[in-house]
Design a binder for these strands. Structure first.
Lengths: 181, 181
DNA sequence: AGCTTGATGTCAGTGACTGACAAGGGGAGG
DNA sequence: CCTCCCCTTGTCAGTCACTGACATCAAGCT
């Protein structure tokens, strides 16, 4: 988290996106506010949207490793809920940063699109992990997608409104899901 | 489906994307092949990707109206599966067009991103419809997302490989889903 | 000191997309 | 038949996202 060009760019981006909106801030403006050139911006981030989606990589690794600590005999969906609960502390710690970021995303269709892509990647990673634990191909896909859908919806609601807590919301979601079947 | 500029643009786009790839075909090339100017392309489609995502609107309406014909007392997920089965004939009829289109999408990350966004919109529409039938807010969201995830996965697999039929695949998916819980 | 490596700056170019304005063609009403 | 109007398209100029090629410069290694 040093004061590197990369992190300055990320902070500048959130600030400008929040103040002027995503569409009407140029990559050059972000770079200027961060004290670098536009070219440097694109060296750090593949495109203008990507500047907001770095945490996903961290989250992905957290989820990947968390899944290892769940006994193999726990059924797939239940496994995922345990994994989600295990990353709650991380999300809690990041809420101050995540909240304004999510506000920007929620206000910008182009960014929501990217977020969906990231969620899909996360879901695919979870599915892979489940397959590694002996879950059938399709079932792993379904479990991962269902899990991610719930996880995304719950965290989004929790970023808009801090209470109830993430844990409580997950409990409730798990019950809702059970009712559904 | 007349021979309008719009449809010519769509056909030209699929052709060129298939032959040269999405990234290395320009909007101007598509327009030229369709016999119009680049400006006309962007009058018909908000952006270069959107030229491939028109059918979604038709599908959405089909799903919307199909849901009306399911008795209110059928539980949510089961409702959705009935709805999906009811649009199978439409999808069957469109397979010749959908298949090459999907091949292009599957080969292009930028297009997959857009497809996810369209699916999310479809899911939201289904959720709305379910809420209109008295399903609780969150449960409607979950049911719709679960349903769409399965529907998307099933149709994708079916576009890659025509047999088993869509109906059979839906049956199997429904069973897989039940197992999951 | 000399060399290498990684991050940054500079510059020129391509292509997606937009706004403003003009032009043509067919249909409705006189 | 003429005229007005609307809808679609063409033209042109401009902004901005993004890229490749090359130069610079500081930090660490030998």
């Amino acid at each position: 988290m040093a004061d590197t060009a990369r992190t300055r760019l990320q902070q500048a981006a959130v600030t400008l996106f929040r103040d002027k909106g995503f569409d009407s801030t140029t990559a050059a403006e972000i770079a200027a506010l961060a004290g670098v050139t536009e070219r440097t911006f694109f060296r750090h981030f593949a495109d203008k949207r990507e500047v907001l989606f770095d945490g996903q990589a961290v989250l992905l690794e957290a989820l990947r490793s968390a899944i290892e600590n769940v006994p193999q005999d726990v059924p797939p969906l239940q496994t995922l809920f345990r994994v989600f609960r295990s990353v709650v502390p991380i999300l809690d710690a990041n809420r101050p940063f995540s909240q304004p970021r999510q506000a920007v995303i929620s206000a910008t269709p182009a960014l929501q699109e990217r977020e969906l892509a990231k969620m899909a990647a996360l879901a695919e990673a979870l599915a892979q992990a489940l397959r590694g634990r002996g879950v059938t191909d399709d079932r792993a896909t379904y479990a991962a997608q269902v899990g991610m859908a719930v996880f995304a919806h719950v965290t989004l609601a929790w970023l808009e409104e801090a209470t109830p807590s993430l844990g409580d919301r997950l409990d409730r979601a798990e019950r809702d899901l059970a009712d559904l079947m």
